[in-house]
Computed example of a mutant assay.
Amino acid sequence: MPKINGNEIRPGNVLEHNGGLWAAVKVDHVKPGKGGAFAQVEMRNLRNGSKLNERFRSADKVERVRLEQRDMQFLFESEGLLTFMDAETFDQVTLPADILGERRPFLQDGMTIVVEFYESEALNATLPQKVTCTVVETEPVVKGQTAANSFKPAVLDNGVKVQVPPFVGPDEDIVVNTETMEYAERA
């Protein structure tokens, strides 16, 4: 596995640290007035979900792990576990539902997502960046409300609340960005 310097860590990188696999969630580069610069890294353990804050100086070397990414189809959820199937080999993999966090409601039946593997162990799942949802409930259009940055609350078919432009009405399909959980465009 390639070793990288502490100042080369980026959010999303997977590192081998203290005998575990950690995903860098947030990275802040700090240059204090006295002493050398360092990276303050917030990491999440890919196996048990625990969090850790660690400081890496630029001279520190860390193992960067490359995860194999496979497209898999979502089949079903039972007892807090999500089951996915590889479309080519028909192998099935289960992951805990909380691995998707607050993005869990955007997972739809039959959706193809990316599952990341370390050797043969499934560790992480990533939703597509954009998902189409239907607006179930929103306020009616107010005449004259055409300001550039005006948004109104809307409830989607999966129960998630997002802010939408004033021209979007009930029963309309919209595209939502799953990374920012915001309205992207009309479908």
Rank of each mutant, 00 (worst) to 15 (best):
T180K: 14
D71E: 12
A24H: 02
K130I: 06
R104I: 10
Q145A: 12
A97C: 10
V27Q: 01
F74A: 03
L75P: 06
D157L: 08
K161F: 00
D109H: 08
E42Y: 05
G110V: 14
N53W: 08
A184G: 05
T94M: 08
G49M: 14
K31L: 13
E121M: 14
R10Y: 10
V155F: 12
R10K: 14
K143M: 11
S50H: 13
Q145T: 06
S120Y: 09
E88M: 08
S150P: 00
T89V: 06
T180E: 15
M181W: 04
D91G: 03
F56A: 01
W22R: 11
R66F: 02
R186D: 09
E139L: 12
T83R: 11
N45K: 10
E179R: 13
G144W: 05
E54A: 12
F117W: 07
K143E: 15
T112F: 11
T132K: 15
D60I: 03
Q129C: 01
E42K: 08
N124W: 13
N7A: 05
H17N: 08
T89G: 00
V30D: 01
E137A: 14
G49R: 12
R57P: 01
E68K: 11
G35C: 12
V25F: 07
K161V: 09
F84I: 10
N5Y: 10
V175N: 06
H17R: 10
G6C: 05
E79K: 15
S50D: 15
A125C: 03
R104E: 12
